[in-house]
Design a protein around this nucleic acid. Structure first.
Lengths: 214, 214
DNA sequence: TAGATTGTTAATCGATTAACAATC
DNA sequence: TAGATTGTTAATCGATTAACAATC
């Protein structure tokens, strides 16, 4: 349990480095990779790659680079990608169902995909009791605290309408969730010990639109 | 056509301010809002709000604040939210279909939602020719250049598998797209005049996972 | 006028990049 | 040994916050 407070932007790049290393394949490829090569794949400066990694240890060999397999395992360990993380989804609408299936499939197909969806929640009584992909049950929102505890859920994805999102976030926090990925188009406020990540499609489109005609 | 190169992070906050102002409602609310109030809603420092806005003009009145309706219209103009922007989607799989429907519905329901989905593209011959929500036709990838031109498409959303994403991006760029929102779990490389925004669910989950046990 | 809040300058903070001695 | 590349320090760059005169 490292108590390291790396900047968010560094964590994001580490996740990218890990993905790139995993894409390199176990066999057949080069055994070592330099910060220059990794930087090119990631679209960042080689000094930045070295600095990011150096925050967590000395993983490289001078004159040679980083051993791919070793660095990959180190990053998996740093990012908690070396264990299964149980997640849940709140809001089993169309987007929520699509995201759920996407996740379930990656978990089933990729041996290193660490996120396992173990529960969904929805207010709609017609949906409660049904299952997504025949495996993940949909529970009522009131079950959030029990299920988080009993199923060992650590992170949640919110795909409810904007108006409901803050209330859902509050319930998740009260239930003991540790991190939230929010798809709802609202700014959420959560206690500072809860990690919050934003996946706001219309905000991102609006950002892109700024650059049109420029 | 302002030729202003505002930092990306400022543009993101402007989009957030605009959404907050739109949420305030035309009638009934206060006529003016201070940088302090807007900052609290947005979760940012009041000085930052003033600085962000001051980059584009003098929108406020000393001692009073910003007139809500006026500031909203200015922001809509700055962000190109005051006109309809035609968009397309490549990859009419489950996630793509969900995102498409989400968009179509917001466009239909919210009078100020500026993004209109006018075309989808997919390689699957079984999908080509069908329509999403009975209104948006699915075309083969080869049609990208023609449709971009004929339908006046400015931005694209990519929801194809990782392996296909770079090729799709290249086709979109060749067809004259101006901006791309990428959901595929790969780092894309595009020319510098093309704006690229990332919506990478598994990368965001991986980022969140870092903070577990910390 | 007195109080409030802007727009802007200056101070602070943090992140990126360059440079290079250490060393494989 | 000669060449390459790391880890790290120093230099640069950019973004955030504080402070305040201007003024509604």
């Amino acid at each position: 349990m490292r108590k390291l407070k790396a900047p968010e932007v560094v964590v994001r790049r580490l996740a990218l480095y890990l993905r790139l290393l995993q894409g390199l394949g176990d066999e057949g490829g080069e055994r070592f990779i330099s910060s220059k090569e990794l930087g090119e794949k990631a679209g960042v400066n080689s000094a930045q790659v070295r600095k990011d990694l150096a925050l967590f240890g000395e993983f490289g060999k001078q004159g040679v680079g980083y051993e791919v397999g070793y660095l990959r395992e180190e990053l998996r360990s740093i990012l908690n990608a070396n264990r299964t993380v149980n997640i849940c989804l709140v809001g089993a609408g169309e987007l929520g169902t699509a995201v759920s299936r996407y996740n379930l499939r990656r978990f089933a197909r990729e041996k290193n995909y660490p996120f396992r969806l173990v529960a969904c929640f929805d207010t709609d009584p017609a949906k409660v009791g049904k299952k997504i992909d025949k495996v993940v049950e949909i529970y009522p929102l009131g079950d959030i605290p029990v299920r988080i505890r009993d199923l060992g859920i650590e992170m949640a994805i919110i795909t409810v309408p904007a108006e409901a999102a803050q209330d859902v976030a509050d319930k998740l926090v009260a239930g003991g969730i540790k991190a939230i990925l929010n798809f709802a188009p609202v700014k959420l406020f959560v206690p500072s010990h809860i990690r919050l990540q934003v996946a706001d499609v219309s905000l991102e489109l609006q950002q892109l639109a700024y650059y049109l005609d420029r």
